[in-house]
Amino acid sequence: MKGPFGRRVVMLLGIYLILLLALGSVYAAFLGSETTTRYVNSFPVGLLWALFGLSSLAAMVFIPTTRRRLPIWLIHVGLFLIILGAMLGSESFHHFTQKLYENGALRKGYLLIYEGQTKNRIVSSNGNLQGKLPFSLKLKDFQVVYDETGEILVRSPGGKMVVLPAEVGRNYPLNCGDMTLRVNKSYKNYRIRFENQRKIDIDEPGSGSNPALEIGLKGKTLMSAKTQVIFPNLPFRPDQDEDCTLEYRRLVRNFCSDVQLLVGGRALIDDQISGGYPLRFQGYHIYQHAYDQKSHKYSVLLLVSDRGLNLVYWGFVCLCGGMIWHFWLGGLHRRFTAMRT
């Protein structure tokens, strides 16, 4: 399609497709992530995306004016690569190749491993076996790292819940019985010791863990000001006449699994997997997903196939590079040459 007329027609098609997808995105925002993912993996929506990617590429190939404009080329080639990569990595394409080759790559699944255990069986989110990996993972150690300051959960009459940062020295008015609360001290490993028949609270050094928070309470309804030590998972009722409870909560900063990756029984990699820092091996990314919240005995790892990911990343580079070149550097270059002439 040559000449300004052809360019205008292609442009119109581009605008139409872009706005159609914008409308679709708004509609999908009301459907929720699960339903939208199902739609996106369906044939008609896949076809629409393919048309979008191919038409943006075709426009670059067939419109003569774009051929000399490398940044615009980069933008549209980038878009095409992102769409192609996303399609190759999609749920439906994985299903298709699994049917084709019997033992194709798994798209996504979970590994629940106890400390000391070695596993290669992948299950789905509802626990069904999905397949076995060509390698196995051993969980050497699992740790939860907490923030220095936690928070106090106040449940006041009527079920209202307020969260207060447990910063030592802070005072808060409480919405129950006109009380005020002061955070006195936080303990990592709270212990009681008796000296000369007097009870004293100490923070025992060492590796033990018994987090607690000492608070001071004052109020009209209380007989006298009192000091209280509160613990995680043990709601405390400051005033028996009021329907109000306080609970200390520690905040998880991160959780990490120290793993060993084995192929044919031989250890190949020793690494730590933590939130935002996955392990990459043989076409898979392995993520820290969840853990045993009660006793920290097991870790849940998420395994996601990398198929198409490199195309998506190259697409990102082309898209951003093209944008910067076209909109920013191009303008600067024009201004610079105008100044010189």
Binding site: S25, V26, T36, L309
Partner: peptide
Amino acid sequence: MAWGEFWSWDPKELWSLAAFL
């Protein structure tokens, strides 16, 4: 890096995609 998927069709992602488009 954080959730395992670079696009999850989450409502906020969809609103921002609509604005971009």
